[in-house]
């Protein structure tokens, strides 16, 4: 059991630490081209390769979407209530709690815990969260700024191609599948290394308020997910994926958006950092319970 857990969590923690050490040692090195490659090419490729390469049950899409809506509503609503009680700015903490790190943290976790099938469900979950994050989340944090354009999002392109091939009942050509698989290989480890690098660059300060919201993010997300998978009777690998994805830290994109709109990025960074630590403390127990 402990050996299983170590082989799931050690690679993740090692990659994050490598990323942190790397960013601390080379403060001048620009990681922007790497993250550009990751988001514009790597993630859409992996999305295509995993969705076309695995036999997903499309009937699962509806309960997945319902579960996601329920988790958004529960965690977001709870966070909103708490911001009213302790007079915290809701435009930081509501998205910070709602939008979890389903990419950098969730994808590799689900891959190691549930294999390739787990990865492809986790990919779909990530796609839904990410699209909402860049539209609704962008609007909340930027208070009514235009928001990211949907058709510019490479994830949307990749999903459209997958949907089209599925509709026409066409198999993906072998050369494309092989190519997207190879390019997609960069995603899991690189996401964690870049997560480590951005954690190392965030201003770190420890206080009570981010801790409260970090607990809401990780423990609240976990509780909401358990409730919803039971309500919707979701079983098997998908159940595990939803619970793990809902128990991850606050997404790094929250911090990027807060920086872009100058909405107290230090507070958002504190939430991301605290919840990342908390998630890594709690995930071994959550995984032990699931596996």
């Amino acid at each position: 059991m402990i050996a299983d857990m170590a082989s799931i969590l050690f690679p993740l923690v090692a990659c994050i630490l490598v990323g942190m050490g790397w960013a601390k040692r080379n403060p001048g090195l620009s990681t922007a081209p790497l993250s550009q490659l990751l988001t514009k090419v790597g993630i859409p490729s992996l999305m295509f390769a995993t969705l076309m390469g695995n036999e997903l049950e499309l009937s699962q899409l509806k309960p997945m979407a319902l579960a996601l809506l329920g988790i958004f509503a529960l965690t977001g609503g709870l966070a909103w209530l708490v911001t009213k009680i302790c007079r915290a700015p809701w435009r930081i903490y509501v998205p910070g709690v709602m939008f979890a790190n389903t990419g950098n943290m969730g994808l590799p976790l689900c891959f190691f815990a549930f294999g390739n099938l787990g990865l492809s469900y986790a990919m779909l979950w990530y796609a839904m969260v990410s699209i909402t994050h860049y539209t609704l989340g962008d609007r909340i944090i930027g208070s009514g700024a235009k928001g990211g354009k949907l058709w510019l999002n490479p994830i949307v392109w990749s999903l459209s191609v997958v949907a089209l091939l599925n509709l026409l009942a066409l198999p993906a050509p072998e050369w494309l599948l092989n190519s997207t698989q190879l390019i997609g290989q960069i995603v899991p480890a690189l996401m964690l290394i870049l997560l480590g690098a951005s954690l190392a660059r965030m201003p770190s300060k420890i206080s009570i308020r981010p801790l409260v919201f970090a607990v809401l993010r990780v423990v609240g997300g976990f509780a909401a997910a358990v409730l919803l998978v039971n309500l919707l009777n979701i079983e098997g690998v998908l159940r595990g994926v939803i619970i793990v994805q809902a128990s991850t830290a606050s997404g790094v994109v929250n911090w990027l958006l807060a920086e872009r709109y100058s909405r107290q990025p230090e507070d958002m960074a504190a939430l991301v950092l605290t919840s990342t630590l908390l998630a890594f403390l709690l995930l071994p127990f959550i995984l032990a319970w699931l596996l």
Binding site: P11, A14, L37, G42, L182, Q185, I186, P188, A189, L190
Partner: peptide, 9 residues
């Protein structure tokens, strides 16, 4: 896991 990044990059 970390080695998988090498070839594509």
């Amino acid at each position: 896991f970390m080695g998988a990044v090498a070839n594509p990059l």
